[in-house]
């Protein structure tokens, strides 16, 4: 006798998307339906291996009966739900979310999808005026909630600031941070349960921070790098990648990705080795593997130096 986990038995519900009816399992999200239907739904804070936080709002859709738009990543379908993705309201909100983010953040490493959506929806961050000066290192983390200097509107406020490099394994480039919460979730209950970082401060001045913004080596961080694994904008990346980019030798066109199994301990985590010019530049894990769910430990993610042929 063999036991196979069948998961929870789910009934099918009927959802209409842009006038087309879909039969999907109860408990699916609207985004699941849209993905199944082949819609190109933009997303930033969503990840298949994390609990939806629906913070970025770029995946919003219209749902009949709801005045505000609805985040498709988090909302579960209900029988008879009527969804529209093809309306001007939806397009406007998606465009504005991308535009607002681009007006405040460096989105240049957010990947091809984001660049495509930005063009497709017509984001124009320059209309908010020229960017203001970058903050000094650590300054943004010291702002007090409920207070800010009144702006004159001559420049647009951004989150620009220097890159934080306080350890040998990864950098934090918070000028790129869109506060998608993914790193916090991966560090927290969704995976690592180390809770080294959290959102601190409030509103536009909110940051991802350790307690009292101490350097990572003083924090609870165990360098699993699962935050890097989920970061959508390049705000968190390995020192190896950062240095290669700085040196102008980052070469994604040469990159190959090979699946293998970690050589440490007996758990058997699937690794994806990202190799450029016969050198491992990054290690990730597929989010849909039952062993790792995309998450690794410090050895798996960074412990490959002994096979680097440098």
């Amino acid at each position: 006798m063999t036991t196979i986990d069948l998961g929870t038995i789910r009934r099918l519900v009927s959802v209409t998307v842009d006038d087309v009816e879909h039969r999907v399992p109860e408990g699916a999200t609207i985004m699941d339906v849209l993905d199944g239907a082949g819609c190109d739904t933009p997303r930033l804070c969503q990840a298949p291996n994390l609990t939806p936080v629906n913070a970025c709002r770029v995946c919003v859709v219209e749902v009949e009966g709801s005045r505000p738009l609805v985040p498709s990543c988090a909302r579960r379908v209900e029988d008879g739900m009527v969804v529209r993705t093809d309306t001007e309201r939806v397009a406007h909100s998606r465009r504005m979310v991308l535009e607002l983010l681009e007006s405040a953040n460096d989105m240049s490493q957010a990947g091809d999808d984001v660049a495509r959506w930005s063009v497709e929806y017509g984001a124009d961050p320059e209309r908010y005026g020229p960017p203001g000066p970058p903050a000094a290192a650590g300054e943004r983390g010291n702002r007090h909630p409920g207070h800010h200097a009144e702006p004159d509107g001559e420049t647009r406020a951004t989150v620009a600031q220097p890159v934080t490099v306080d350890n040998d394994l990864y950098v934090r480039d918070y000028a790129r941070c869109i506060l998608c919460y993914k790193c916090v979730e991966a560090c927290g209950t969704d995976a690592q349960n180390t809770f080294a970082i959290a959102v601190a401060g409030r509103g536009f001045d909110a940051t991802i921070s350790t307690e009292f913004a101490v350097p990572l080596p003083d924090s609870a961080c165990v360098y699993c790098g699962n935050c890097i694994g989920v970061c959508p904008t390049g705000a968190l990346k390995s020192v190896a990648e950062h240095e290669r980019r700085e040196a102008g030798i980052w070469d994604p066109d040469d990159e190959t990705v090979t699946s293998t199994i970690c050589s440490f301990c007996g758990v058997g985590c699937t690794l994806e080795l990202h190799v450029q010019h016969n050198t491992i530049v990054n290690v990730t894990s597929p989010h849909d593997h039952s062993v790792t769910h995309g998450h690794l430990c410090i050895k798996g993610r960074f412990g490959f130096q002994h096979v680097q042929n440098l």
Partner: peptide, 20 residues
């Protein structure tokens, strides 16, 4: 702008741009 919790993009950045 002060009281936005900062969680969602429309409010976090929108309130800044509105004030500017």
């Amino acid at each position: 702008r002060d009281e936005s919790c900062g969680q969602c993009v429309p409010c976090r950045v929108g309130t800044v741009r509105q004030e500017e």
